[in-house]
């Protein structure tokens, strides 16, 4: 066992993170500027616009995609959030979710496409995704804080890492599942690889990719709450206050607001996926 004492995985990882903190500062600062800019943009938009207007827009979106029952649910749900005095925090959380999902998709979908085209990429990406998904969510928070300090930006980064895998996996899967004959048809009529991807593979894979988007949104919502621990703000912060101050009422109310937001986002993205699914046999 003496030999094994030299294998100090935790120590090596800490050394790596320290090294990155010092030498990658420029990169992390740049990321902070971009993420923070987008995040504050969404936040100020959602918070400065009167709540009733925002609710009207959400309801209209629900009606258009998921039907009148979902529209009724969103009116009732979001009014309840207002009533509980959690509107501002809910909009903060929604901004965090939107920002991290945008980044997750920008990274995840192209990565998924690449993995679907090359088995070697898939072989490398898959274990990394497994690692990202199974490592306890709290562990992300430590390096995120070291790189980006406290606040909403490390929250977005940790959330993005946690919610990235389904976007990659399901894009990869969706494109690999495109029937051979459809791909052959596109090739045989003289489509270039780019045309095959854009005109045949991505549209056929779209329902599966949207299922991945839905999963990414759900995962990021759950992570955003945890990110409240590092000062990301929003509903996570309220939940944390509820826990630390043992305030059952606050904890329950903010938990309920999260559930309402989750149901709303889930049903609407699912409905989007279903409407494209209908064109398939």
């Amino acid at each position: 066992m003496i030999v094994l004492q030299f294998i100090d995985i935790g120590g090596w990882f800490a050394a790596l993170i320290n090294w990155l903190t010092i030498h990658g500062a420029f990169f992390f600062d740049a990321v902070t500027v971009v993420v923070d800019g987008l995040l504050s943009g969404f936040q100020s938009l959602l918070i400065t616009v009167p709540a009733l207007v925002v609710i009207a827009v959400f309801t209209a979106a629900a009606w258009a995609t998921a039907g009148k029952w979902m529209a009724l649910f969103s009116i009732a749900g979001f009014l309840l959030i207002m009533q509980m005095n959690l509107w501002r925090q809910t909009m903060q959380t929604l901004s965090l979710v939107i920002t991290s999902v945008i980044f997750a998709l920008i990274i995840g979908i192209p990565l998924g496409i690449w993995a679907s085209k090359r088995d070697s990429v898939e072989r490398i990406v898959r274990p990394i995704l497994d690692f990202m998904q199974t490592l306890p969510a709290f562990v992300y928070l430590i390096p995120a804080v070291l790189f980006f300090r406290l606040g909403p930006v490390p929250g977005v980064i940790a959330t993005l890492i946690f919610s990235l895998p389904p976007a990659v996996r399901l894009t990869n899967l969706g494109i690999r599942q495109v029937p051979t004959e459809i791909r052959e048809a596109a090739v045989s009529y003289g489509a270039t690889p780019k045309q095959i991807l854009i005109k045949a593979e991505l549209p056929v894979a779209l329902p599966t990719i949207l299922a991945g988007v839905n999963q990414t949104i759900m995962l990021s919502l759950s992570m955003v709450v945890i990110a409240g621990m590092i000062g990301a703000g929003g509903l996570g912060n309220e939940v944390l206050r509820g826990i630390t101050q043992l305030r059952i009422d606050l904890g329950f109310e903010s938990g309920l607001a999260i559930v309402i937001l989750a149901i709303y986002l889930d049903r609407i993205t699912q409905a989007l996926g279903n409407s494209t699914q209908k064109q398939k046999k």
Partner: peptide, 27 residues
């Protein structure tokens, strides 16, 4: 040269006309 497939190989997200146009469109 054009090809006809056993299981048709049609694009499900495109209309009949858009499917027929496909070869000329990519050309």
């Amino acid at each position: 040269m054009s090809m006809v497939f056993q299981h048709f190989g049609l694009l499900p997200h495109r209309t009949v006309a858009a499917n027929v146009e496909f070869g000329m469109e990519v050309g």
